[in-house]
């Protein structure tokens, strides 16, 4: 599996061949607070780069999760829909949101590295 890349909307992506795994970052979960509801997309759904793909809700508010990369969903992580709190515990591991078959690897290449993302978060607090 490739290194994780990051979006400005606080999603992470890792790539295994043509299949990308997408989740939200630890920083995102810290901003959201206690996560109490998650909706993940069904397999077969087409998503655009930066298009809405999933929903995450904390006690405070509902937020959309965007796909940082375009493609066709191959799997939504049902485990996090059943146990939304697990996203707070392991957001960048077991609690990924969805997998998709990508169309264009350059979309992945253009995302931020871990270092760039950490810098981005520091420069854009809240």
């Amino acid at each position: 599996m490739s290194e994780k890349k990051f979006s400005k909307k606080h999603e992470w992506v890792s790539l295994d061949g043509e299949v990308a795994t997408v989740g939200i970052t630890k920083h995102a979960t810290e901003m959201l607070g206690d996560i109490v509801f998650v909706e993940v997309p069904d397999a077969g759904k087409a998503v655009e780069k930066e298009g809405q793909a999933a929903v995450v809700e904390s006690t405070k508010a509902a937020s959309d999760v965007y796909s940082p990369i375009s493609g066709e969903i191959t799997e939504g992580n049902k485990a996090i829909a059943d146990d939304p709190g697990s996203v707070n515990t392991d957001p960048e591991g077991a609690s990924w949101f969805f997998k998709l078959k990508i169309k264009d690897k350059s979309e992945y290449d253009s995302l931020m590295s871990k270092d760039d993302y950490d810098k981005f978060c520091k420069e854009n607090p809240s």
Binding site: G33, D34, V36, S58, T59, K60
Partner: peptide, 10 residues
């Protein structure tokens, strides 16, 4: 204050 360190659920 909307919340403190522990968060809303705790």
């Amino acid at each position: 204050p909307i919340q403190y360190k522990d968060g809303i659920v705790k």
